[in-house]
């Protein structure tokens, strides 16, 4: 066997392994999509991937939601919860990161250590007092428990990520801006922020993803169905039917993951690069 042949067969094996891992990873999602067209009889006890017919019936039925609240409302709720949270997070974390990355101030070392320590502060240990705190402010069953931590930069992961990114920008930029008479705020807004776009975008995407997927906090802070985000709505549908029509359940689950997938395909560069750069210096 020639060297070329050996190389070729090596390549084939390599792509075969890649394909097998790929199928293992993606099959569940593909199966989910086709299951949205299947009756319970088709779903159970069969390995067939394709449905017998394609009909949007389950999407239409499922979308009606529960009582008089449809998935239109659940989606509106979700975006009402998620989008302000994302923007507030990015804005506040960028400001704080600027404070850490570009200034030498007394107590910096301690404060930075505190920031890193909070990176490891588990949500489980602060959730009960946060609940009672929000409860005493009358914020339960509103989206304020999501907005306020975002406004107050309580996401050390993003602060840290943006600090790391800003450290990579040359300090001479700031110096020359100062010489030109810019104040710190103008230097930040006009010089640094435009250069930070990729990092800000990554932070925003991850915050979108995490807030969108988050179930625990919504479960605790939101208690009326009319304010439910999708995650709670799905769980409600799952629990409230005595005989679950799985095709319908899958249709709504698929609808629920669709925004995340679309966002990922349009912005995958930021996802993959964002995750790659944050870990590097940690």
């Amino acid at each position: 066997m020639g060297k070329e042949m050996k190389k070729m067969s090596g390549m084939v094996v390599q792509y075969l392994i890649i394909a097998i891992i790929g199928i293992f990873l993606l099959y569940p999602i593909i199966w989910m999509f086709f299951a949205t067209f299947k009756t319970n009889e088709e779903i159970f006890g069969s390995i067939k991937l394709l449905p017998s017919k394609f009909s949007l019936q389950y999407y239409i039925e499922g979308w009606k939601g529960r009582g008089n609240i449809s998935y239109t409302q659940f989606f509106i709720n979700t975006f009402k919860l998620v989008i302000p949270t994302v923007f507030l997070t990015v804005a506040s974390c960028a400001l704080v990161a600027y404070g850490f990355a570009r200034f030498k101030f007394p107590g910096k070392k301690i404060l930075f250590t505190v920031l890193i320590a909070t990176l490891m502060l588990p949500n489980a240990v602060i959730i009960i007092p946060r609940y009672t705190l929000y409860n005493s402010f009358g914020w339960i069953n509103s989206y304020l428990p999501f907005y306020v931590p975002a406004l107050l930069a309580c996401y050390p992961f993003f602060v840290f990520m943006l600090i790391q990114f800003m450290r990579g920008l040359p300090k001479e930029l700031d110096q020359s801006a100062y010489i030109d008479g810019c104040g710190t705020l103008r230097t930040f807004v006009q010089i640094l922020l435009p250069l930070m776009k990729p990092a800000l975008f990554s932070a925003g995407l991850f915050q979108f993803l995490w807030t969108y997927n988050d179930y625990f906090n919504s479960l605790i802070f939101i208690n009326s169905v009319s304010k439910y985000p999708i995650s709670l709505a799905l769980k409600l549908s799952l629990d409230s039917e005595s005989v679950v029509v799985w095709g319908r359940m899958m249709a709504m689950s698929f609808v629920a993951v669709l925004p995340v997938m679309l966002l990922f395909f349009f912005a995958q560069k930021y996802f993959v690069e964002g995750i790659a750069t944050t870990g590097i210096k940690g």
């Binding site: 993803l209 995490w210 997927n213 179930y215 999708i230 709670l232 629920a256 993951v257």
Partner: peptide, 9 residues
């Protein structure tokens, strides 16, 4: 698959 960490769906 990593897009769906903690997703109910």
């Amino acid at each position: 698959p990593s897009l769906f960490g903690g997703s109910v769906a």
